[in-house]
Structures are given as C-alpha cells and as structure tokens.
Design a protein around this nucleic acid. Structure first.
Length: 465
DNA sequence: GGTGCCGGGTA
DNA sequence: TACCCGGCACC
C-alpha cells in the first residue's frame, strides 16, 4: 500500500520555494539556486520520507487497533469545531514546514478516489466530514476500511474505556501528535493487513535514528507504537511459545535453544568442521529443525526430547515408502549417491529434506489427488500412498550439495521433499500407449477407419497396449 | 508441432 | 449413451 504522492505537488512546492530567490541580488542567484536546489531536494526527500512514514504509521495503526473497540468518539468530537482539527494538524506538522501545507491539502481537500484497491499499490486517503456538523473528528476511508481520526484534545476527553482499552497507543498531548482511532468499520475484521515493511518503518516526526525493528513478522506492535509515540506502552503478554532447534542427525536428536548453537553443534560434531567452527556454508541448516515448545512445559518437553532416537521424534525426517514400480532412480537421487560427502553418509539416510517452519501446523490433512495423503502433524508430517506411483515436485536441487537452490530465506519457508520418485507432478494419467494407434495406422484421411475411441479422441480400443 | 487421451459438454 | 472437442502431457 502506498500513500499516493503527486509529482505535481512536489514541483509546486519546490517552485514555491524557488520563487523566493527573486529577493536576492542577481550575482548571488546562481549560487543560491544551486544551494537551494540541493536544499529543495533534501526537503523533498524528507517530505517523501515523512509521507512514507505516515503511510506506515497508518498501516501500523490498522494492526494495533484491529482488536479494540471503537470509542464513542462521534458524540464527543462533534461538539468541537473543525478549527480545532485544523489547529491540531498545524501544530502537529509545525516541525515539517513543507509537509504541513501538503498534509493540509491532502487532509482537508481529500483525494477523493482510489478507494478499496490496495492491490495496485496505490491507496488513497479519502476524507469525509464526520457528520453534517463541523467537527474535530474526521472519518477517513483508506481502501475499504474506514477510520476516525481525532484531535488530541478530543482524545483527552474520551471515556476511560478508550484509554483503558489497551492496545491503542495514545498520543502524547504535549507532543501534539495526531491521533487516530480504531477503524470504525468493524464489519470486516478479517481484512488482512498489508505486509509491513518493518525495516523501513520510521517514526513520523523524529528524524533522529531509531532502533530499527527486526524485519520479522513477529514485530512487537507495542514497541513499534512506542517508537511512534514516545510513550510507555503496556507490553503485550509474552509469547509462551519457545522455539528450540533439534538436530536431525541420525541417532543424535540434540536440542538446543539457539540456531547458532545447533549449527555449531552440527558443524563441529557431525560435519567435522573443527578448525573453522565459526564458518558456515549453510549445510548445517539441513540437519536441524525448529520445534516450538510451550514454555509452560518446556522442562517436560526438553526432558522428553533430549537424546531420543530420531526415528521416534516428531521432528525426525520422515521416511517415505516408495512403491516398487516407481523405484527408478530419479536424477537427483543419482547425484545424491555420487556426491555424498563422507559425513553425509551417516546423515538422514534418505535425505528427504524437511525444513520445517511449522506452516502446516494448523492446517488439516491435505489429500493429494490420487491416493496419497499428506498429514501435517505438529512439526512433522507424514505422507503415505498406495499405487500408482506418486511423484513429488521439489524445488531445484543444487547438484553439489543436494540442497534446494535458493536463499536461506526461501528455504526457511518451504517444506520440501527431495529425492523424489520420478519427475513431474502428481499424475494419475494412464501411461501413454506406445504402440501405433488408429491415427498413425490409417492416417487422418482414413479417419472413418479409426476405432470409435480414436475418433472420439479417447484411448484407442483397437490397438491397446 | 504431432499425438494420445482425459475431462467435460451437448444432443 | 453416443458423439464431439478443448486442452493437457508427452514426444
């Protein structure tokens, strides 16, 4: 989602700025122009940044406010004049001299179009007067969602439930930040928020560098809001799920609490890289898996998880029955045997690689067309099938390492089954007949001599295989 | 592109 | 049910 930004506005603003130069003597004009161009560029950049921050702020608001009740803002705010709204915005934007008039234009004029489509990358802010009376509350529509924005003064007057509602990062009245309410449209609570680019998220008014949130979906919203409003936010309940890392090496099953730890363990113990134990080429990624433990029962979980035979473990690499009829060597299987490293020989034997990210934990069993069944089960899954041969499509395998080609990030989000039976996707299609068919025998010109099946483009009944 | 044939539509 | 054909996979 992008806050639309009109190039004309930029030009207009910079032209406005440039027009002041006529006040200077001509001799200075050139230098001043150069300097001012730079300055204007800087200001424009800052404006872009601010605009982006507003957009991100809005996104964040959507997330933070998605689970709160909307306060009865209308009745309170309707009593106030639009002047208060305007004053508040002016006060809020006073530190951003170029942004202020722009924002004012955007806010009070509204852009008027572009509702409801965030898929094309533009999503405009549409201002609607809040009721017929002038008010310091405004209703906004961004895409399909509506928002009520309140000036800080109004926020101060709101009921206790608003403040105690939790989750709403109330703004500091002294700082004059513009404050936003929860979406007024609760009719579609499941509307997915757009993915947030947390690493580009910056506080609206503060140009000073802020600690960058981790580029992680699990970004703490309270912290992010705190960045915005410089106000302590009640921290949300600590997630009781703890991620552990379990070694999948045969007969190991060691569980460590950090990825680095498990990687080092695999490097040094299983891969035998003693000398350069800090160096990682990523191979160890394939010999451990993440497991999520409820911290309430971590102690129990650990005691039961620790040295356990991988074959008994949930996270152990599954072994798949391979129907005899399909036990032809797949290309990658050949590569596997050829390029197996000495230690890989004791690695998970079938090298059906499963890198779990728990994406399937909550999903119901998936039935693969035919007779194969995919059954997610915690951090592992099982696949079983009966004949006919079933093939799995994996992501490409690096010929040198028998590993998926792609970035670690990609791998991290993929459950992959490698070393599959023959190529292709799951196909129940009857093997194509090898013999001559009516078409071949009689040719197109003698179509009337074909068997009916051939005429009907069905499987030939005359020359069956 | 040619071929085999599956899946589905129509009468 | 007979007939036809779009479309897909394979060669």
């Amino acid at each position: 989602m992008t806050f639309t930004f009109q190039p004309e506005d930029l030009k207009r603003d910079s032209n406005k700025k440039m027009s002041h130069q006529h006040l200077f003597p001509l001799a200075m004009e050139e230098d001043v122009k150069t300097a001012d161009t730079k300055k204007a560029n800087r200001v424009l950049d800052q404006e872009k940044e601010n605009t982006r921050s507003i957009c991100l702020l809005e996104q964040k608001r959507k997330v933070v406010s998605s689970n709160i009740d909307v306060p009865p803002a209308r009745t309170i705010c309707q009593e106030r004049g639009e002047g208060a709204l305007r004053r508040t915005i002016e006060g809020n934007l006073k530190d951003s001299p170029l942004l202020a008039p722009r924002m004012e234009r955007e806010i009070f004029r509204g852009t008027g179009h572009g509702q409801g489509d965030s898929s094309n990358g533009t999503n405009q802010l549409v201002h609607q007067p809040f009721g017929s009376k002038p008010s310091c509350a405004a209703k906004w529509q961004l895409g399909s969602r509506q928002y009520i924005s309140l000036c800080v003064d109004c926020r101060e007057g709101l009921s206790g439930s608003w403040k105690e509602g939790g989750g709403v990062p109330s703004s500091s009245s002294s700082s004059g930040y513009w404050s936003w309410s929860a979406p007024s449209d609760q009719s579609n609570p499941s509307t997915p928020s757009p993915p947030l680019s947390a690493d580009s998220f910056k506080p609206f008014r503060s140009p000073a560098p802020q600690p960058q949130p981790q580029p992680d979906d699990g970004i703490d919203e309270a912290e992010a809001s705190n960045l915005l409003f410089d106000e302590p936010i009640p921290r949300k309940r600590k997630n009781s799920m703890k991620v552990m890392f379990k070694c999948l090496w045969k007969n190991c099953g060691k569980v460590l609490s950090t990825a680095a730890g498990i990687q080092k363990h695999i490097r040094t113990i299983h891969l035998g890289r003693v000398g350069d134990s800090d160096y990682s080429d990523g191979e160890e990624d394939f010999y451990y898996t993440e497991i999520k433990l409820n911290t309430d029962s971590v102690a129990d979980g650990l005691s039961s998880l620790a040295p356990v035979s991988p074959s008994q473990s949930l996270a152990s690499p599954p072994t798949f029955p391979i129907p005899d009829s399909s036990r032809t060597e797949a290309p990658c299987a050949k590569t596997e045997t050829k390029l197996m490293t000495p230690l890989s020989r004791s690695a998970p034997t079938t090298l059906y690689l499963v890198h779990t990210d728990h994406a399937y934990q909550a999903t119901p069993p998936v039935t693969i067309p035919g007779s194969a069944k995919f059954t997610p089960n915690g951090s592992s899954f099982s696949i079983s099938w009966q004949s006919p041969p079933v093939t799995f499509t994996g992501i490409p395998v690096s010929p040198t390492h028998n590993r998926p080609v792609g970035t670690g990030e990609q791998r991290q989000h993929t459950h992959t089954v490698l070393s599959s039976p023959p190529r292709g996707t799951v196909s129940l299609r009857k093997p194509r007949g090898e013999g001559k068919k009516c078409r071949k025998v009689y040719g197109m010109e003698n179509r009337d001599m074909w068997c009916t099946a051939c005429r009907w483009k069905k499987a030939c009944q005359r020359f069956t295989d």
